[in-house]
Simulated assay, not measured.
Amino acid sequence: MQVMIFGAGYSGQAIGAATLARGKAAAGTTRGPDRLAHLGSRGIIPYLYDGEHLSPVLRGAMLTTTHLVQSIPPGSGGDSLLRLTEGDLKRWFPALTWVAYLSTVGVYGNHDGAWVDETTPCQPKSARAVERVRAEAAWREAGRAAGIPVAILRLAGIYGPGRNALVNLHRGTAHRIIKKDQVFNRIRVEDIANATMFLASSNRAGIFNVTDDEPAPPQDVVSEAARLMGVQPPPEQDFETADMRPIARSFYGDNKRISNAALRNLGFQFAFPNYRSSLAELWSSGRWFG
């Protein structure tokens, strides 16, 4: 197995670590030359990719890639890798046997707190979610044309070491925004990585929600983090009057409970199925700050 991760950021690096832990080779791309050494220090073979050009050295690595993970969000012009390769996976990745496209549960849109699963029709509201739906379809079509299985991983809100409510409290940036009946799912970054490897091990195709078991109000997560730290949680703020950036406010427009049963029914076990056990592990292990 030769894994290539386009977009080796927070989730991509976790996938790289999980790949290496299984004794397999991992490569990854970054936009910044200053990030190459960081990826290399983690054992991930680093390549530059700016979304506009495929360098000769990167094209060479693509020839031996067996498992491709696309973690770069699309733009208004669509998925950059599909655009540059004209969707011809067999030509650019002749050794390829499996693709993972990392998407988002935002494609489902708002369901007023109701449960959704992979059979629920997408009704994206934001431009970002619309772009994701189009990218999902484009990757599935590219896979179909090449005869290569494509797994679409729809991710909930990502957190983990260095990115969590404990860190936000420590930095004084945590907020308890109250919107009646609002819930979110979330997912620990290590579970994203392990789910990716689980699906890659059998070249499994399909759409999979990668999310925890317990959709919960966001203020409850902050309160639990404060309890673990032994500090007072920040005061509650009403959503309607809270001072929030537009992008943060937009996330509250989608309210749903997301099922992960499809992935569980294949035999995958989440290491961090809810925010309470996950925050407790981050705090007790000392890994909460990254």
Score class of each variant (00 low, 15 high):
Thr97Arg: 12
Val116Trp: 02
Leu153Pro: 10
Phe93Val: 11
Arg163Glu: 07
Asn110Arg: 14
Gly106Arg: 09
Cys122Tyr: 13
Arg132Ala: 09
Leu84Asn: 05
Lys125Asn: 15
Ala129Gln: 10
Glu118Tyr: 00
Trp115Gly: 14
Gly162Tyr: 00
Asp112Ile: 15
Trp139Pro: 03
Ala129Thr: 14
Gly143Asp: 01
Ala156Tyr: 10
Lys90Val: 01
Ala129Ile: 14
Gly160Arg: 02
Leu153Val: 07
Trp115Glu: 11
Ala114Pro: 15
Val99Thr: 02
Leu169His: 14
Val167Gly: 05
Glu118Ile: 02
Arg140Asn: 04
Thr85Cys: 07
Ala156Met: 15
Asp88Arg: 15
Asn168Pro: 08
Arg83Asp: 08
Asp79Ala: 09
Leu96Val: 08
Lys90Trp: 04
Arg140Glu: 05
Trp115Met: 11
Ala95Gln: 12
Ala146Asp: 13
Pro149Val: 00
Val99Arg: 00
Ala145Glu: 12
Gly106Ile: 13
Val130Ala: 14
Lys125Met: 06
Ile148Tyr: 04
Lys90Asn: 13
Ile152Pro: 00
Leu89His: 09
Arg144Ile: 08
Glu86Arg: 10
Asn110Tyr: 03
Ala146His: 05
Thr85Leu: 06
Ala138Gly: 02
Val99His: 00
Lys125Pro: 05
Leu153Cys: 14
Val133Met: 07
Gly113Cys: 12
Ala138Met: 07
Gly162Asn: 06
Lys90His: 09
Leu155Trp: 01
Glu141Gln: 08
Gly157Ile: 04
Arg154Asp: 00
Thr119Phe: 00
Leu89Trp: 03
Val130Tyr: 12
Asp79Met: 03
Lys125Val: 13
Gly143Lys: 04
Val107Asn: 09
Ala142Leu: 03
Trp92Gln: 15
Gly78Asp: 09
Thr120Ala: 03
Ala165Ile: 13
Leu96His: 08
Val150Tyr: 02
Ala156Arg: 01
Gly113Val: 15
Arg163Asp: 13
Arg128Val: 11
Ala137Lys: 05
Gly160Gln: 10
Leu84Glu: 01
Phe93Met: 10
Val105Ile: 07
Asn164Val: 11
Ser126Leu: 06
Trp115Cys: 08
Gly113Lys: 15
Arg132Ser: 07
Leu82Ala: 12
Lys125His: 09
Glu86Trp: 08
Arg128Asp: 13
Arg128Gly: 10
Ser80Val: 13
Asp117Ile: 05
Ala156Lys: 09
Val150Leu: 05
Leu153Asn: 01
Gly109Glu: 10
Glu86Leu: 06
Ile158Arg: 06
Arg171Met: 11
Gly143Trp: 02
Ala165Thr: 05
Ser126Glu: 14
Val133Cys: 11
Val105Pro: 08
Glu86Val: 04
Ala138His: 02
Tyr159Ala: 15
Ala114Arg: 15
Thr119Tyr: 02
Trp139His: 06
Leu96Trp: 01
Asp112Ser: 15
Asp88Cys: 15
Gly157Lys: 14
Ala146Trp: 02
Thr120Val: 03
Ala165Tyr: 01
Tyr108Leu: 12
Val150Cys: 08
Arg144Leu: 08
Leu89Asp: 05
His170Cys: 11
Tyr108Arg: 14
Ala114Val: 13
Asp88His: 12
Ala146Leu: 07
Arg132Asp: 04
Pro161Ile: 12
Arg140Leu: 06
Val116Ser: 07
Trp115Pro: 08
Pro124Val: 01
Leu82Ile: 09
Glu141Asp: 01
Ser80Met: 10
Leu155Ile: 04
Arg128Cys: 06
Ser80His: 05
Ala129Asn: 12
Arg134Gly: 12
Arg171Phe: 02
Ala165Arg: 07
Gly78His: 12
